[in-house]
């Protein structure tokens, strides 16, 4: 079957049965793949949380931009200092700035919604949810937030009852 592949010449041995050497090579390769590019810690937990959010049938915003100290990666226990994240949706943009709170034990989230409106913003974590309202300038804040997978949900203005959610981020 592989001979039909783009009309290129057959590779000797391609139709042979998989043998012990192939098995050993694949096992070794699998270990190398895992070691050279490890899956971020807690990606599984964030994914499970994202699935819980998906059941709420909110529209998911797009992660537009992360500004973070060089070398840090979300999900790899990045330091919080000066991390700002922008999320976009066709009807709304949310920007959040993260900073350490309570001497680093918790996280402070300062956010802005644009266009500015007094929208209700909900912060969801696997352990529970908190709600606040943005002010007339679109500003909102959550203080003393636990670290861990987090998503913000915004209930849009208008009678169509649309809720948008950010992708899950790791605080």
């Amino acid at each position: 079957m592989s001979r039909q592949d783009a009309g290129s010449t057959p590779v000797p041995g391609e139709d042979d049965a998989l043998d012990h050497v192939d098995v050993a090579l694949l096992d070794r390769l699998g270990r190398a793949v895992r070691a050279t590019d490890p899956v971020p810690e807690s990606l599984v937990e964030r994914s499970l949380f994202a699935m819980t959010l998906a059941r709420l049938e909110a529209e998911v915003m797009e992660l537009q931009q992360i500004t973070a100290p060089a070398g840090s990666v979300r999900g790899d226990a990045a330091p919080l200092e000066a991390r700002t994240i922008t999320f976009t949706h066709e009807r709304l943009t949310v920007m959040i700035a993260l900073s350490a709170d309570d001497d680093g034990a918790h996280v402070r989230v300062d956010g802005w919604v644009a266009p500015a409106d007094t929208l209700t913003v909900e912060l969801r974590q696997p352990g529970g949810e908190r709600t606040t309202d943005a002010d007339a300038d679109g500003r909102f804040a959550f203080s003393a937030v636990d670290r861990g997978p987090t998503s913000l949900l915004v209930h849009l203005a208008g009678g169509d009852d649309v809720t948008v959610a950010t992708p899950v981020i790791e605080l």
Binding site: S2, D5, P10, V11, E14, L18, V21, D22, L25, L26
Partner: peptide, 16 residues
């Protein structure tokens, strides 16, 4: 079917 029951093209290339 290019890999699985048989070694397949890519694995054969790697072995070569």
């Amino acid at each position: 079917g290019s890999i699985g029951a048989t070694r397949g093209r890519c694995l054969a290339k790697l072995r070569a």
